[in-house]
Structure formats: structure tokens, C-alpha cells
């Protein structure tokens, strides 16, 4: 199993230091959710973990090897990344898009091996997209489109999958559909690390939560340990009451309005 960790990692955008000497070990085989307010650096951290940003200091290690020194194609066979709200080229079909996930496994003389076809079919089946295989992406609903992008990342066949807010722009039913799909993939052995906006979703679906504040880890642990009134106050600056989901027992964060009308 592959282990992804950050060691004294500093990341910056245009000289602004966003992540400051951060140490993180993501638990293998689990779902980790990065949470925190806008601008806390959670997306930046995810981009750093996916080598989309070069570290200012420190490093990201995959099984002890610094990912910035690894050949990028080799890394792409172990680590998949799905950015926030990706846009597909006009007219591309589901099959063509998902097949792109095989890019790191191919070269010019191996354009479509039997393994590629099998991975494509598995990814489509896993996401329930077989009936839509020849449809153009522009004709799909938001939820179907997001499943197609996830299928592309699945076809990449990596042990670890990183996702930046995979539920953005989706309605509640499609949000749950995507999160349940990720949960199932995790049960089949994939390590999932994702940025989530919704605390209750994070508490419900992730086994490890990392709360970020101003580029540093403020707290991490299980939902019970991280979703507390005091941490929500410190990280988000919001007063809240934490109750437990009547059906599942997961912590639920209920914000309290600041001004009475």
C-alpha cells in the first residue's frame, strides 16, 4: 500500500506563503477530508500533494520518495487528481474522456492495449456509465458529468485519488451519489483524499478529518474529535451546536445565527 505524506511542506502562490511548514500523514486505505474556511489553504495543500504546485520548502513523499523527483508519468500511475469543476472539450464523448485516464499507461506504440480496454470498461461499470458511453459530455447532467470525470480518474488505476470539492455545483441527490461512489471505491481499497466544503458531509463520509486554519493544521482525527464546538469556532469563526445524527450517530454541526432580527 502506498503512503502519501507531507514533510515540513511550504507552498506559495505568487510569493504569498499559503501553506507554512506543514506535516501531514494521510492514513492509507481511508477517506481523508481537508476542511476549513475559504483561503485557509486546503485546495493549495491538495494541489501540493498532487505535484501541481512545486514546494517552496520541504517535500511531499510517496512511500518515502519525494514526488517532485519522480518521473511525472510514473507518479500518474500511483496518484490520480481530479481538480474542482473541470471543463471538458466541446463534443468529447464519455468513452473518449474516460479513455484519457489511460494516458500514463500508454506510449506511441502502445495506444490501446487489452489492459486499457479492461480498465475503461471497469471504470465505466463502476460509475454506471455503460449506457452513456457514446454520449457527448455536453449532453449529460451535472451529476453524470462528474461521474464521468471520476471514471476517468478510475481508469488511471491509481492507489490514491485526490479530489478538490467533487460535489461543487451538484444538487443534494447528486452530491450524495458522488460521495457514496467514493465511499464504495474506498471500501475496494482506494485511498481517497478530498477537499470538502460541507462539514456534515465530511463528518459522514470521511474517517480522517484535517481542519486547516491559516495554512496550518489546527486539528485532525476522527469526526468526533474534529467536529466540536470549539474547533468550529476557532477555524471558521462560527458559533455552533454539535448534535448527533439521529439515524447514524455522526456529529452534525448546526451553526447559530449571529444576529437576532
Amino acid at each position: 500500500m502506498t503512503v502519501l505524506q507531507a514533510e515540513k511542506l511550504s507552498l506559495s502562490y505568487d510569493r504569498d506563503l499559503i501553506i507554512d511548514r506543514l506535516d501531514l500523514e494521510t492514513p492509507t486505505g481511508q477517506i481523508t477530508a481537508l476542511i476549513g474556511p475559504n483561503g485557509c489553504g486546503k485546495s493549495t495543500l491538495l494541489r501540493g500533494l498532487a505535484r501541481l504546485l512545486r514546494p517552496q520548502h520541504g517535500s511531499v513523499l510517496l512511500d518515502g520518495r519525494a514526488i517532485h523527483t519522480m518521473p511525472t508519468k510514473q507518479l500518474a500511475r500511483e496518484l490520480g487528481i481530479l481538480p474542482q469543476a473541470p471543463t471538458a472539450p466541446e463534443g468529447i464523448t464519455v468513452r473518449e474522456l474516460v479513455a484519457q485516464g489511460r494516458y500514463p499507461h500508454q506510449d506511441w506504440f502502445q495506444q490501446w492495449s487489452h489492459a486499457d480496454e479492461q480498465a475503461l470498461q471497469r471504470a465505466l461499470k463502476r460509475t454506471g456509465l455503460i449506457p452513456l458511453i457514446d454520449r457527448a459530455m455536453d449532453t449529460l447532467s451535472g451529476g453524470q458529468r462528474q461521474r464521468a470525470w471520476i471514471a476517468m480518474a478510475l481508469a488511471q488505476e491509481t492507489d490514491i485519488l485526490l479530489l478538490d470539492e467533487p460535489t461543487t455545483y451538484l444538487d443534494l441527490a447528486h452530491q450524495l451519489e458522488v460521495l457514496e461512489l467514493l465511499e464504495k471505491l474506498n471500501q475496494e481499497g482506494k485511498t481517497i483524499i478530498m477537499v470538502l466544503h460541507d462539514l456534515n458531509h465530511a463528518a459522514y463520509y470521511a474517517s480522517h478529518l484535517v481542519a486547516l486554519s491559516e495554512g496550518k493544521i489546527f486539528a485532525q482525527g476522527t469526526a468526533q474529535e474534529v467536529i466540536t464546538e470549539s474547533i468550529v469556532r476557532h477555524v471558521f469563526g462560527v458559533e455552533s451546536q454539535i448534535i448527533h445524527h439521529p439515524a447514524t450517530g455522526a456529529p452534525l454541526c448546526l451553526p447559530i445565527r449571529r444576529y437576532q432580527p
Partner: peptide
């Protein structure tokens, strides 16, 4: 020869890099 890389690039910078381009 380069057209295959262009397919990956056409999905956006982040995804292209994530695919190992």
C-alpha cells in the same frame, strides 16, 4: 506525434499534469 499529448492538454493544465504530462 504530439497529437496524443494534445488530448491530455485539452482537458486543462491540472488534469494534463495529473495524467503525467
Amino acid at each position: 506525434y504530439g497529437a496524443r499529448d494534445l488530448n491530455a492538454l485539452n482537458l486543462g493544465e491540472d488534469i494534463a499534469q495529473g495524467l503525467g504530462l
